[in-house]
Structure formats: structure tokens, C-alpha cells
Design a protein around this nucleic acid. Sequence first.
DNA 1: AGTAATAATCGAAACGTTTCGATTTAGTAT
DNA 2: ATACTAAATCGAAACGTTTCGATTATTACT
Lengths: 322, 322
Amino acid sequence: MVSIKDVAKKAGVSISTVSYALNGSDKVTDKTTAKIMAIANELNYVPNAAARSLKRQQTRNVGIFLTDFGGNFYGDLLQGVKEDLKQKGYALVVCSGTQSHRMLPERMIDGAIILDETFSNEELLKHADRGHKLVVLDRELNHPNINQVLLDNKAGAALAMEYLLEQGHDKIYAVSGPPGSYDSMRRLHAVRTIVERNKHLEYSEIAGDFDKPGGEAAAKQIAEEYARPVAVFCLNDEMAIGLYNYITTNTSLVIGEHIHLVGFDNIELTRYVQPRLATIDYSMRKWGALASEQLLKMLSGEPVDHERIYVSLVKGASVNPL
Amino acid sequence: MVSIKDVAKKAGVSISTVSYALNGSDKVTDKTTAKIMAIANELNYVPNAAARSLKRQQTRNVGIFLTDFGGNFYGDLLQGVKEDLKQKGYALVVCSGTQSHRMLPERMIDGAIILDETFSNEELLKHADRGHKLVVLDRELNHPNINQVLLDNKAGAALAMEYLLEQGHDKIYAVSGPPGSYDSMRRLHAVRTIVERNKHLEYSEIAGDFDKPGGEAAAKQIAEEYARPVAVFCLNDEMAIGLYNYITTNTSLVIGEHIHLVGFDNIELTRYVQPRLATIDYSMRKWGALASEQLLKMLSGEPVDHERIYVSLVKGASVNPL
DNA sequence: AGTAATAATCGAAACGTTTCGATTTAGTAT
DNA sequence: ATACTAAATCGAAACGTTTCGATTATTACT
């Protein structure tokens, strides 16, 4: 492998001069710079990232940690992160699973965006204590090295509930995500607040798991208990689709008539089920872009403030007036 | 940051002994190993990846290069790669866009899996010449450092076409992907071979782009030309869905009656459109797992042979007998 | 007990950069 | 021409590991 030493030798200058030239320092004269550049090109020289990281004590990589790669969910988020990072000279390392947990301590990345409940708060705080910069998307954490960009779950849940109430529904199910999920907790909390303010509602909760099987199980229970038209707020679309499937294939109930359904996330699938699934929309791409922007600011020492991603209601024929 | 030096000092031994102990060498006595381990733990010592890579001349990272993160397409593929890699102590770096191209030359990864047409054959061959190990999923390349794990596009296209022919269809459209795409080319080639063998077919081709707009454009053209029932083979599902949407929302033609549709890839969406989209299925997860297995073998110097991913037909009501 | 063989530990070089302080070269003013 | 200043280049140390060859400690054998 050709190293800076080879370039130096061929150019007849010292290693340090080559380094300065290649990094665009104005210490070295234009003529020598040009010559060095030419030779570096000719030799196909590319600096060794490991050596550079070691010396610089920074990698110019940032990581993003996801629970898994499955689902379409993350595509746009990653796209948003990537686009923002690119022009700032940082590379993105996408990780999922146990390997993720090694990345920060081993200093393979300078900082990270976290959307992965397999990281405990303690672990994240420990990383932050050691000086790593973090942006969390799935929890609230108070630490100078941690910033958060959170979804406006409360507003989203309120939007969904109000939509159902406006349509006259008074028997309501909420299908929640895993107990530890921040998003699920925030959404559920908002739902309960609204329920408490509307004493006339007949309300119950079912624990889903933010996945299709969870939605199917909920559907089963709802179908068995069915007596009169109900409204169901699935705290994410994935479950709503699972529920949808179960209902349409295993029962004679119809969505939008007997069961009025609203989801959360506006995943692509919502557009393809009939009737269209009502849901809560927000820009994944913007979420990613904002997160990486914040992270880079932190890495360069700029002060940052917590940010919030706004949401909106997408109406659909899965909900009709009672 | 605590380094091996700190551990050595606290343990009262030399740096080299610590290194041997931590790497499980049997040169060092069990007692000292235990002591060193304990102290390393106590100090929260974690080896610096950059230093280690620099010395070892390998990173224990492998990359996977994708055209983009969008679409659900890659989720299962990545999952397959990740699972295989995990137990072998390698970490996965998922990259897309311009940054990808820097990863290999800068030696941030030891090898890569490629599914990204923005890499030219020349570029890949150059990397291989420099000693990097590559597994390509989207082209055929002959080089000792390059192995390929390809989809059986030919069989898939044949399966789809035979399905249509069995159902008695004789007017057929093929909607192709981007001209440079290997998968599109292979599929189209197989289609043409079959068309040539069946002289009675009325056959035409439309250039899509492997995306929804491409499918919509094709749909528009087909609808305008419509005279009698036709069969359409979209060379991927994405386009089939786009076509599907256009037809159902903008025309009075119905899928499975006037237009008989088959796709390729068996993406999740195919299960949610009504009628279900007939398509060609294969295991993305297995594809990923096989690719990473091959890559790791190459990295450890074992010989590998090209592999093939087999496909099967998924019937659906989007196709009916003529 | 003394020596030979073996086991355990150590010191130092090397991996490929960056960067500080020192040195050489060129430039300017007298 | 000479001295002085500024500009350009250089040498060497440092980043944190791994690993070779050398050194020291231990064990086994006569």
C-alpha cells in the first residue's frame, strides 16, 4: 500500500511537507503543492483512515443505531441523515444489533444518533460522560453531551383522537406499543388525557407490540367483543395494518363501517390498503436531517437546543362518521 | 481516555504483557491474565479501534454499498448480512452515496458487498486489484478478489412468462428497468428468448425505471393503446404497483380482468393490493447471508465459488385465465 | 546444587498520519 | 554585500496498538 512516505520520497520532500500540502496548508508554496498533488495522484495515494483517526483523535464518522433494519420505516430517515452529512465531510455508519454497542467505546465513530431501545439510558449516559456526542430520537435524557429531536407524539395522538371524536365515535380502543417504548408511552399518555376530559367515552386499551402480530391479536379481541361500531387508534401503522388484515380476512366486519381505524406514522402501506388508512404524518427525512444537523453542531462545539418534529393528520376512509 | 498504558501501569506489568493477556495469548500466566482483566474492567478500558486497525492492517469491518436507503427493499437483505456477520466478530458498515466510494481506498473496511450501480466495473476492478475482497450482487465480474452471488433472474423471468402463457395470454407487455441495470437486462433477455420461441405472441416493451413513476408511465401508455385483454410483466414489483395504481385510479380497466399483471421481487406491498399481485419470490435474507458468508471466506483466504439465489412463482389474482 | 530447557515477561520497533518547534531558504532593506 | 525578517521546509515526537526478539524467572533433570 502506498503511504505518505512514498509520496514524500518520490517528490523529494519531507513527509511533513506532503502532509501540509495535502491538507491545504498555506505554509507550503504553490509550486510544491502542485507537484505533490500530482505525484500523489499518480501513485494513487489515499490517506489511511486508521492512522489519521489515531493521530487526530477523531474519525469523522457518525453512527446511527437502529433496533433493526426491517420495515420500510427507516429508509427516509437514513436518507435525510445521509444528505445532511455528506456535504459536511462526515461518513455515516448504520448499525443495528450487538455490534452497535461497541462502536462508541472503540472510538470508531465520533458521535451517534440513537433510535434503538436496546440501548439503556445508563449506557447512553455513560457514553456521554466519556465525551461522546449523542442525539436521541426515542427518549428524553438530560446531559450536556446529549441532545434530543423528538416527535410531537402528544400533538399527534391528540389529532387522531379529536378526529375520531369529531366523527361522533364514543367507544374507543387504543392499541399500544411495547411498554418500554418512549413513543408509545407519550402517545398513550396523550390519549388518556383526552379520554379523561371526555367522560362519556367508553374506552379500553390493548397491548400490541408495534408490529403486525400485535395488531392481529388486538383485532381478534376486538372482533370477539364486538357489539356496536367502534373506533380504534393503533399507536402505529404497522399494527393498524395487522389489525386491518385480520379483520378483513377473518371476520365479516368492515373497516370504516363497523371498525373505524386510525394509525400513526403514515408508512407507505397506508396508501395501498382499501379503504385508505387514516394516520398521523410527519417527515422522516426531516427528522433525520435535523438529527444529523444537531449532531454535527455538537461535534463542532456549537450550542444546540432540543428540537421537535411536527405532525399532521391524514384523513382516510378507514374512518367515517358514526 | 484510558489506554493500554494505563492498564499496564496500574497492573505493574509491561504494555506488551497487557496486550497478550487481553488477546488471550497463552504466553501469559493465568494469574496475571486474571489480574489484568480485572484492572482493565475496573478502568473501563476498551481498545482503540483506529490504533488496532493501523497495526493489524485490517479493520474487521465490512461494508455494504446500496444505491439508496429508500424503499423497503433492503431491510431483509441487511438483516441477513448482519446476522451472519455478528457471530464472526465483524461489524457492518452500511453506506450509500458518494461517501461509499471512499471507504475502501481509505481502508475503513476490509471488504464489501456491492448492490449499487453507481460503482463502475472499472472502479470495482481497481479495488480488487489493490487487494480488497468484494462480493457483487448486481453484475458479473471476473477477478480473483471478486465473487458474485446472483439472483436467478433468468429462471424468474421464465417462471413469470410461463405463468402468463399457461393462462392463455398472447398479448404481452414487458416493462423494463433502467438500461444499465444488470437485473433488468437479465430478466429482459430471458423474456425475449421466450417470446422468440412463441411466434404467436404479440409482444412489446416499455422502458420503466424500476420505480413507481416508471410503472405509472407504462400504465398510461398501455391504457391508451388498450383494445383487448393484455398481460403485463413488470420486471419489478415497484413498477407493478405504480402501474396498478394508475390503472385503478385513472381508468376503468380492472387488474386481473383487462390487465393481467405479474411483478418481480415479492415486496411486502404485493400482499396488500387487491387483487394480490402475482410475482417472483426469493429470500432477501438468504441473499444477504450468503453474500456475507462468501465475503468472510474470501477475507480469511478460503476459496469460494459463485452462488445463485433461487426463485419461485407466487400466484395471485392479478392474473387470471384469458 | 547447578545447569539446561522452558515459560513468562519485557523493551522497542512499527503501523501511517499530524503537528510542534527547529532549521534552512528566500526576500528585503540598509 | 550584510544583516534581519519572513517564508518554506524539515525532523521528530506522538497517537495506541501488536509482535518480534531479547531478557529474566521458573521448572525439571542429573
